[in-house]
C-alpha cells in the first residue's frame, strides 16, 4: 500500500515539484525582467519626451506641417508625447521578448528570436515612412511655389503629383524593408511610374503638339524677344 502511494501519488507529485522548482527561477526572472522593463520603459519614455520638448521638437513639427497632418488623422497628442510613448512601447516589447526568453522554452525562444530579428526592419520602415512624409511635404511646397512663380496653370496638380509620387516611393521602400511582397512592390511601382510617364508623353505629344513645338523652338532656336513681356529692372 505504501509502495502504491509512493509510486502512484507521491512520485508524480515529486516530479511535478522538481519541474516547478526547475521552472520557478525562470518565472521569477521573467517577472523581474518585466518589472525592470516596465520601469525602464517609463523612465526612457519620460526622459525622451522631456528632452524633445526642451529642444523644440513640437515647434519643428509644427513648421513642417506634421502637427496639422496628425490633427487631420485624428491624433490630438503632441509629437513629443508621441515619441515618448513610442519609446515606452518599444522598450516594453523588447522587455517582453527578453522576459519570454528567460523561460528558456524552445518554441518561445525561437519565436522571440525571430521577433527580435524583425524589429530593425520595423524601425527602418518607420524611419523611411517618416522621412518620406517630411520630404514629400517640403518638395511639394517648393514645387508649388516654383510652378506658380513660373506661371504654370496646373501648379497645384504638379505639386500634388510630386507629393504623392514621393510618398508612394517611401511606402514602396518601407514595404520592401518589411519583406512584404517585395517583387510585387517593385514591379507595381515600375509599372505605375512607367505608365504615368508614357501617358504624360502621349498626352503632351498628341494633345499639346503646338505647345511642344513652341517649347522646343524657344529652347533650341534663338529668336528675338516677342515684345509681349516687359523690360522691368527689378533691382
Amino acid at each position: 500500500m505504501n509502495d502504491f502511494i509512493n509510486q502512484a501519488l507521491l512520485g508524480p507529485l515529486e516530479l511535478l515539484g522538481h519541474q516547478v522548482l526547475t521552472v520557478l527561477p525562470n518565472v521569477l526572472a521573467m517577472g523581474i525582467i518585466l518589472l525592470g522593463g516596465l520601469f525602464t520603459a517609463w523612465a526612457f519614455g519620460f526622459f525622451v519626451e522631456r528632452l524633445f520638448r526642451v529642444i523644440g521638437f513640437d515647434h519643428l513639427c509644427d513648421r513642417l506641417g506634421m502637427n496639422a497632418a496628425l490633427l487631420r488623422g485624428g491624433v490630438k497628442t503632441d509629437p513629443s508625447r508621441l515619441v515618448g510613448r513610442s519609446i515606452y512601447w518599444m522598450v516594453i516589447v523588447l522587455a517582453s521578448i527578453a522576459a519570454l526568453g528567460a523561460l528558456n522554452l524552445t518554441p518561445i525562444n525561437q519565436f522571440a528570436q525571430s521577433l527580435l530579428a524583425y524589429v530593425p526592419h520595423l524601425v527602418t520602415a518607420a524611419v523611411i515612412l517618416l522621412a518620406g512624409y517630411f520630404l514629400s511635404n517640403f518638395a511639394s511646397q517648393a514645387v508649388l511655389i516654383a510652378a506658380v512663380n513660373a506661371g504654370l496653370p496646373p501648379a497645384r496638380l504638379i505639386a500634388a503629383c510630386s507629393r504623392w509620387g514621393l510618398q508612394l516611393l517611401a511606402a514602396a521602400m518601407a514595404l520592401e524593408q518589411l519583406g512584404i511582397a517585395q517583387h510585387i512592390v517593385v514591379v507595381g511601382f515600375g509599372i505605375t511610374w512607367g505608365g504615368i510617364v508614357l501617358a504624360g508623353a502621349i498626352a503632351f505629344g498628341l494633345g499639346s503638339a503646338d505647345l511642344a513645338k513652341g517649347f522646343l523652338e524657344r529652347r533650341l532656336v534663338a529668336r528675338p524677344k516677342s515684345g509681349t513681356g516687359d523690360d522691368l529692372h527689378h533691382l
Partner: peptide, 19 residues
C-alpha cells in the same frame, strides 16, 4: 521701360488661388 501689367496681375491672382 515697357511693363506688362496684365501678366503681373495674372501671376498675382494665381498666387492668391494656389498659394
Amino acid at each position: 521701360v515697357h511693363v506688362n501689367v496684365e501678366r503681373m496681375v495674372s501671376h498675382y491672382r494665381q498666387g492668391l488661388t494656389d498659394l
